[in-house]
Design a protein around this nucleic acid. Structure first.
Lengths: 221, 221
DNA sequence: TGTACATCAGTGAACGCGCGTTCACTGATGTAC
DNA sequence: TGTACATCAGTGAACGCGCGTTCACTGATGTAC
């Protein structure tokens, strides 16, 4: 498992790495053109000018190709966010700046790769598990102290906090999770066309909202 | 176009209304089982025990059937929200209560009909229009006054406000839109499986978040 | 109330299509000696 | 460096499948007189 072993050495290995990449690119173009369900091995093969059966030398089935695309998308969006954070020089920036930079980087990636974004944050493929009975709605119209955590919520937050590298206070964690969902919610909303006719382009609205979220999470102005 | 003309009168009309309903129900079951792309006229016909060609007497094509499902879903989620608001007696409830009731009703409907929710708020069918060049990110790291609206945003809000029945202040409108996107973002997040392993069931987190949103929108405690 | 004709619902066979996957094969690349 | 054999990449034909949609048809329901 040394680095030299991972790097392609022979012509064969080089060609294989190259073609694997090209197949995924072709599949990504298919994804953009016709959606996840439209990705077909035969069409990808056609685009690459090879027999459809040849793809089976690279991916054992259509599903494996799709899985590879999903993994790549996760990697790419994560890298975009990390890069944006890294670009904010630690000595000169605050947490708030890094938060904002990451939010905008994520949105930028999503807008640049809408179909890959949909692949990971859009509606999932069938097989949804109904998560049992809906659970009662108790606590829904919770009392006036809006920032105090309900019992169940506090327990969940503590459990999650304990399982994380550097534990944080449950209140902070809950706020972070809320911000996270709302960040992706807003991006999805924009991407999937719900803003059409009102706030479009949504750049300004997005900037405004993430600034609010930054304050909400606890980054001072 | 009188009411009597709309109601089915003859046996034929009655049967037609009935079967139209059954076809849509069959399609909805298909939707739940295999996703939007899995809906096939043939399978629906099979389930109903009739020839696939018979469906063409009711829907001119597969797409029209899908469209009918989408319209029904919009109607249903809207009705759920309206019903919840109506159930809060005006004399005894504040705007905040009605807001919370509507949020929870929408979530409840979404959890009860996940695939129909995905149909309207999930990733759209291909044909995404890239909305031109991404627009610059100016205003992203906007100045410290987080609640003041940037120029462009204020203009959009004013335009939208003017086009609405009872105009509201731009600041309020922007907050409402943000709350709206974050509400649906959170529901989608939960539904599409992103909470698995952390905050699940998400009842408490949801209740907490919408309470925060209520305050954010401007409903006093 | 009864008859003649028009409208409509449902049938079943057929069309052409694109798909995922398998298989026996040929030829090129890599490896051991 | 050269040869013999093993491994791998890519081919093209074939399989069975389910799909959307069309069409000529039969029989039932509705309507005008």
């Amino acid at each position: 498992m040394t680095a030299t072993q991972n790097a392609p050495r022979t012509a064969r290995e080089r060609a294989r790495a190259e073609l694997t990449r090209e197949i995924k690119e072709g599949a990504r173009r298919q994804l953009a053109a016709t959606g996840a369900d439209g990705i077909s091995l035969r069409a990808v093969a056609r685009e690459l000018g090879m027999a459809s059966s040849a793809l089976y030398r690279y991916f054992p089935s259509r599903d494996d190709l799709l899985t590879a695309l999903i993994i790549d998308a996760y990697d790419a969006i994560g890298e975009a966010a990390e890069q944006a954070i890294a670009d904010e020089k630690p000595e000169e920036s605050w947490g708030r700046d890094r938060w904002l930079a990451a939010c905008h980087a994520i949105r930028r990636w999503a807008l640049a790769h809408p179909h890959e974004y949909a692949l990971i944050y859009g509606s999932p493929v069938p097989g949804y598990r109904a998560a049992g009975e809906l659970g009662d709605d108790a606590g829904a119209h919770a009392g006036p102290d809006a920032d105090a955590l309900a019992d169940g919520l506090a327990k969940q937050a503590e459990a999650l906090s304990a399982s994380v590298a550097s534990p944080v206070a449950p209140e902070v964690l809950v706020r972070a999770v809320i911000a996270w969902t709302q960040l992706f919610g807003m991006i999805s909303w924009e991407l999937f066309g719900q803003f059409v006719g009102s706030f479009e382009p949504a750049d300004a609205l997005f900037a405004h909202a993430v600034a609010q979220l930054a304050t909400f999470v606890g980054f001072p102005l």
